[in-house]
Structure formats: structure tokens, C-alpha cells
Design a binder for these strands. Structure first.
Lengths: 351, 351
DNA sequence: CTCGCTATGTACAACGTTGTACCTTTTGGG
DNA sequence: CCCAAAAGGTACAACGTTGTACATAGCGAG
């Protein structure tokens, strides 16, 4: 019994037809109780495990979905992948992870790639393609878009309240009395596309324009990837430009963590001299020095919703339903970097 | 052309047999140059993409490997997954990630699970099973073990120099003049199994026993998962027990980062009052406050080696080669937490 | 001009599973 | 006691691909 047994081997051993074995495996009703039991036992004994390629070929479903993200090295996506794998596991699905490295060609290749004849559907988090590429999303294969960059496309879409949560974040900084609020991680070109960066910048502008304060362009640091280095560099730029600031809104947490480090190097105390607000609420922010106030976009909710939508699309028989867009709720978790110094932080606002 | 074309559709359109199309797709030589070109063009035009289930069924290979890790929420494993996906992509393989949550039953299920009839092979990083479970590794399916916990098993194994690198790490702390070196993240029961924790603790003990200093059991904090919280708690335990310490060796970086935070809360300066050494060299450690000296186990090397070994096993025809064990090199990267305050840190020692 | 080779291609089976259609026995109601 | 229907099962094809074995044409050497 050293080689993998097939359904034929089990059937032969049980003295029944292969279809009966198949029926047992799939819990089809047309099998007598004692036959069922006997076959179950044999399956265990022989170590039979169905061949998913064969099953996939016959039934057109593999039980595997794809998740395309820029890179698991970016903490947000690692945590998102964790949530997606858990959500998928609950539905009996496995997840193949494809890293696109934020490369446009790779993203397009992933969307139209050979891969699609193997996975039942794809969760796709774009980082490079934009509104002008909306037609590459037109496909018969189940596809759910995650995040921003493309709106009104032909697919389901799970996104977050980028603008309003960013506005709420900046309002929190205003509420604690800050008036010179720097923005870091802002897009290279303001408002050139529906990226997370642009949508969040819009929230920043709205909050400041609604207040009496208004925008000081010197406080907006543009450019760079959303990594820790960029956060460090942004603070350096602000210092070198001699502009005064008492708060920093970083468009994601890794930027904010880089900023925390740079601020400390300049001898600026957080939150006394400068308050810092991040975005994403990654685990790391609970343990930084100081711990980081952040916008929590609800990763688990995003993942569960996205997987549920994808499963619906996969099961969809003939007529396709119109594309759905779901926005997950958000909350703001206040921690030390904006002056709340107790344990795990507190939820300030939630939708 | 709204439905996915098969090789039959392409063959019909080209006026050739399906086998000729197949030959083109697989770069088999027996096709004339102009036929080849014509079929290539049709494949592109029609958007033909091979069905991997069918290919997998026929050829027994799917081009997909599995990676089983405790959780992508643990930074080390997220970065390892990144490296593995990259290494696999170079060989034309995709990666399904299975999270075992450090759960023994889940780990065993993953090893013997239905999954194995679908992936070509598995990279398995155990967190719960141990030497006593060595027989669950006995399988015909290609399997490469990553990390510790089981040695001398029936499979290939990629591991690191846990003990000697930990010894080198502690020697570094001794070299900078520290004598009261705490150990955090130590195993619950000393030396009960070949876990990373035990092997690294052994290195700690060797370094101290080789010096004139010896072990002070009050400096060894046992128990807890290797997360930031545990690092925080460990420092609290040390403070509450009133034992004096001038350095901390954390058995992984997240522990160390938790420790950094707790030390700051107690007003202890790093490295002036307490030097801190981590293990894993995750990205985050380059931007913590202060940046973290750490043992770099060479994730990329580990991933490349593991994938290469797995590919060899997958291609293995009849007789199986004896199991191989490969140990990756390590280096120690010194940063601010042990007194080196310049840019990206410096490599102290490398193998 | 014919043999044998190479170059190019074809037909068919097989991989392991599930869906469809059918067949046989038992069972119970009239 | 007979017949219909339910219960339990079977046989065969099909999913899309690739390996094996064979077919045909063209061409150069003898």
C-alpha cells in the first residue's frame, strides 16, 4: 500500500462500483448505511485521499482561490492575507498567494494569466493599475477587487471609507488641539487617480478646510513608497524645510512608525511636541514607542466580505448579478501617540 | 469567444490535431516552424490558457507547492513566505499557504491531509509537533521540513545554526561589556525538545559558561508565545523580581521589540542601561527605537534552499535519495540596541 | 526509382473523478 | 397477490490534457 490509492482501489477492496465510493465521499444519499460505513472504514485504512486535479477537472472547481497583493513584506498585506486565509478556510477553500510587487505588468499578467484556469476565483488588490486599465478586469472568471484605484469596474469591489475615515482621523488631531498637521505619504501628483493616497489626502483636506485652519502646502510631504524609510525621510524633509508642525498624519502605519523613529532622533517628544496618527492599525502599532493611534479599517470584515462575494460569484450559475461594492466600517483607535496612555488603546469612533 | 477555449478549440481553428497544439505549448520539437507560429498566434488571439487541473491530472504535477506555517501574523513567517513565494516563482511554481496556528492537530492534518493530492510538495514549518511525531513525516509525497523541532526525520530539512548563532549573539553582548544578561522567550521546560527555543537557550548557556560568568537562573524568563506582549511581560517580570540586568537576549525579534517598549516604560535607556539583542532580523527592527541588533538567519537562503530541495524531490524518479539536512549561514547585524548608531547597522559576524 | 531516413504530424488511450441514465431488488398499499 | 415506487446500486461517458504508437510526405543516397 505504498502508492496513493485511487477511488478504483477502494471500490475493488469494497467490492462495489467506483460510483458508490464517490457517492460516499460526497455524501450522496443513494448508499445504504452499512455499505457507507464499510467504505468509510476502507477509505481511512487505505489512506485514500481524493485527487483534487481530477475532481477539479470533472467538476470545474478546485477549491482554491487566489489572492494577489503587492508583497507580504508589507505588514498590512501580511495581516490581510492572514485574514483572507482564515475566511477562506471557513468555507473550505485554500489560498494561493501571488505577489505582484506593485508592478503593472505583473498585475495585468496575474489578471489574465494562466493561473486563472486553476483557481476558482481571484481576490485582487491592485497597487499599480488604475482607472484607465478598467478593461483588464473584464473577465468571465470570478474576480473581487480589494482596495482602491479602480471604481465602477465590472467586478465586485470591497473597499473602505478612505476619505471619511481620514477626515475623522484629522478631526481627532484637531480635537486634541493640534493646528499644524503635517501629511506624509501624500501622492506624488495630487488627485491624479483614485488611489488610497489620494482618497485619504482628500479627507485630510476636508477636515482642515472645514475647520478655520485650512491647508498649508508646506505641511504636505509628497512622494515615496509607504514604507518605514519614507516616514523617516518625510520627517527629515519637514525639519529641513523649517516649517513648524505639531502633528503628523501618516497615510499608513509603517510610514507612521518610520516617523516616530525620526521624531525621536530629532528629540521631538510624541505626543507632547508632535502627535502622530497612522492608518491600518497593524499589530506593530500597539507596541511601538509610543504606541500608535490609527484608523482601523476592519481587515477581518474586509476579508470575510470579499471571500463571501467571491464564493457567490463562483457559485453563480448563468446570469451574472450586477457588480456589488461593499465598504467596510472603520474605527479610530487612540493610543499614546495622540495622548491616550492606557493599555490597548480606546476606540474613539466607529461606524 | 466568451467561454474559456480548450486545446480542442485551438486545434479546430488551426486545422491541426490537439496533440500538435499540445506540442507547441510544451515546446516539443516535432512541430514545423510556420505551424508553430500560427498556433502561437491563435493561442494569443483566442486567449487560450491551459487548464491546470487537466494538466495536473494527466502529468501528475500541478505546479503548486504548499507552505505550512503557524501564521502570517507572525512577522518572521510573513517574511519567510515572501521569500518562499519569490523562490518558487523563479522555478515557475505557485504557493498555497496553509496556516496551522501552532495547533498540533492542524499540523498533523496538514501533513496527511487531502491537500497532498493537489500540491506537488510541501514546505512544512512545524510549531507544535515534535520528535515523538516523527512518523507522521513518513510519506511518499515530497516534503521538506523547515526550522527545528524534528531532527533526523525521513525528509529533507533546512534549518539554521540556532545554538551557535545564539552563542555568538550572547558573546557579542559579553564583548560590549555586559555581564548580567537576561534571556527572554526561554522554553517553559528547559531542554524538553529540539525547539528553536531550546536550541537557542543552549547557545546562551554555552556563551555564559565559557565566560567566567555562568548562569543566573533568575535572569532566565520562561514561557509565553513569541509575541510582543510576551516581551513586555518578560521585562515586567524581571523588574518585579528585583534582579539586576544590563542586557537582554530575546529569542526572537518580536519579543525584543516588546522588550524595548517595556524598558522605555520603566525609564531604562537602551543601550546605555540595557543592551538588547534579537533574533530573526525582521524589517521592523531596522526602524524601532532604538534600532535592533539581531541574528540574521538568512531567510532568502533558507527559502531558496528549501524550494530547490523540494523541486529535486518532486522530480525524483524512482529511488529516493537519503534525506539531506542543510543549515543556512547566519550573521549578526549590530544596530543601536547594542550601541552601534549608524545607518543600516553593520555586520559583525557572518558564516 | 526505391529504400530508408527525417521531419511533421495524427489517433487514441489514459489520468481520477463525478453526472446521467439505467438496472435490480425490496417494500408496502390496494 | 400484484404492481408501483423507493432504495441501493451499476455502467459508461466526459472533463482537458499529454504520452505512446503509428502515419505520411519529402528527400538524398545508392
Amino acid at each position: 500500500m505504498n502508492v496513493n490509492p485511487t477511488i478504483h482501489d477502494v471500490a475493488r477492496a469494497a467490492g462495489v462500483s467506483i460510483k458508490t465510493v464517490s457517492n460516499v465521499l460526497n455524501d450522496n444519499p443513494k448508499v445504504g448505511p452499512e455499505t457507507r460505513l464499510r467504505i468509510r472504514r476502507l477509505v481511512d485504512e487505505m489512506g485514500y485521499r481524493p485527487n483534487l486535479s481530477a475532481r477539479g477537472l470533472r467538476s470545474g472547481k478546485t477549491g482554491v482561490i487566489g489572492l494577489a497583493v503587492p508583497s507580504l513584506r508589507e505588514t498590512y498585506f501580511a495581516e490581510l492575507a492572514d485574514s483572507v486565509i482564515r475566511a477562506a478556510a471557513k468555507k473550505g477553500l485554500r489560498v494561493v498567494i501571488e505577489q505582484t510587487n506593485g508592478d503593472r505588468d505583473l498585475e495585468i499578467a496575474t489578471l489574465s494569466g494562466g493561473q486563472m484556469r486553476f483557481i476558482d476565483g481571484l481576490l485582487f488588490s491592485p497597487a499599480a493599475i488604475g482607472q484607465q486599465d478598467v478593461d483588464v478586469l473584464t473577465t468571465n472568471d470570478p474576480l473581487v477587487l480589494l482596495g482602491e484605484r479602480i471604481f465602477g469596474g465590472p467586478t465586485d469591489h470591497v473597499t473602505m471609507h478612505n476619505t471619511s475615515s481620514a477626515r475623522a482621523a484629522v478631526e481627532h488631531l484637531l480635537n486634541i488641539g493640534r493646528t499644524k498637521i503635517a501629511l506624509i505619504g501624500a501622492p506624488e501628483q495630487p488627485a491624479d487617480e483614485a488611489s488610497s493616497a489620494n482618497l485619504r489626502e482628500r479627507g485630510y483636506r476636508q477636515a482642515l478646510e472645514n475647520s478655520a485652519i485650512g491647508i498649508d502646502p508646506r505641511l504636505v510631504v509628497r512622494g515615496g513608497t509607504w514604507h518605514r524609510e519614507t516616514g523617516v525621510a518625510a520627517i527629515r524633509r519637514l525639519r529641513e524645510s523649517n516649517v513648524d508642525f505639531d502633528a503628523v498624519f501618516a497615510l499608513n502605519d509603517t510610514l507612521a512608525l518610520g516617523a516616530l523613529r525620526a521624531l525621536a532622533q530629532y528629540g521631538l517628544r510624541v505626543p507632547q511636541d508632535v502627535a502622530v496618527m497612522g492608518f491600518d492599525n497593524i499589530d506593530e502599532g500597539r507596541f511601538s514607542l509610543p504606541s500608535l493611534t490609527s484608523v482601523d479599517p476592519g481587515r477581518d470584515e474586509i476579508a470575510e466580505t470579499a471571500v463571501a462575494l467571491l464564493v457567490n460569484r463562483i457559485q453563480e450559475k448563468d446570469e451574472k448579478a450586477a457588480p456589488k461594492t461593499v465598504k467596510s466600517g472603520f474605527r479610530i483607535v487612540q493610543r499614546e501617540s495622540t495622548g491616550f496612555a492606557d493599555g490597548d488603546g480606546r476606540t474613539l469612533l466607529s461606524t
